[in-house]
Design a protein around this nucleic acid. Structure first.
Lengths: 144, 144
DNA sequence: GCTTGCCTTGAAGTGTACATGAAGGTTTAA
DNA sequence: TTAAACCTTCATGTACACTTCAAGGCAAGC
């Protein structure tokens, strides 16, 4: 498939795919006789892997380092493993921070009582929860 | 406290704190008679809130929009709520992507067998798992 | 044969989120 | 009283991750 189809399939722009190839985040892509990129499923998987890791907050630089190690299939499994574990730890921390932020926003959302929407039942529920939590969580009296 | 102490307390650079104030991510900070910023705990909480949301991937722009709504304490709770919910959705998707990436890496890690480290027991375990999963998960035969 | 639509490379431009530097003011310590 | 160590504003610089532009090649349809 050509680069445009690959772009549509992955949601990554053609320019970004070229950029990823240039930065060695994906392997060198095969070319047709006239020099156009001919992208197969292996490349598509790699692009998706890159997208996933990028979404997870991994920098291009770190990703390239990781992929370099992975592609050079020598006896560096120990190094790979260490790198993987290191990256995992970073990502898990990130996930936990994200969850904390989500909890924070959810808490705020649940303690919003919107006069236009809240049913009496919801209001009672919110007040009850608030009474339960006021001593432990109202260290942020300004809402932040 | 002065800006340097606030910076040390929050882990946010002095320049970034000034930038946040300029961009209205935090309220206008009180000044000492000579014009230096005098930062109190309310500002510290705001800085921490910004840090948390930034770490969660919220842009300065969105954060400012949200805080503007929040600070203008009029009857915009519906709008605030909508904005919060929008942001929550973004963050939950991000968390899920991150979890998917974590799962991906964990899978790879569990299927690494490092000749230098793996005990025979671990090796047997890995082979067993591999046999169990080969049909369902080996859609990534190249490791990506 | 010309337009359309894809592709190529390389260079330059863009947006975000700060960081850094210049020029100067204030307070403390020797 | 002079140096150190803070601070101020405003302007400019920087890193990252692309995006856009310029200039041109190839293939199909009219």
């Amino acid at each position: 498939m050509n680069i445009k189809e690959a772009s549509e399939k992955t949601g990554v722009s053609s320019a970004a795919i070229r950029y990823y190839e240039k930065e060695s985040l994906i392997p060198a892509i095969d070319r047709t006789p006239v020099g156009n990129r001919d992208i197969d499923d292996r490349i598509i998987r790699r692009i998706r892997f890159v997208t996933q890791m990028r979404a997870a907050g991994m920098s291009i630089e770190n990703l390239r380092r990781y992929i370099e190690l992975f592609d050079a299939q020598e006896d560096n499994t120990k190094e790979q493993k260490a790198l993987l574990q290191e990256q995992l730890a970073v990502m898990e921390e990130k996930r936990d921070d994200l969850q904390a932020a989500i909890d924070h926003l959810n808490y705020k959302l649940n303690h919003f009582y919107d006069h236009m929407e809240a049913t009496e039942e919801e209001l009672r529920q919110l007040e009850k929860e608030h009474a339960d939590k006021i001593t432990q969580e109202d260290d942020t009296p300004d809402g932040f």
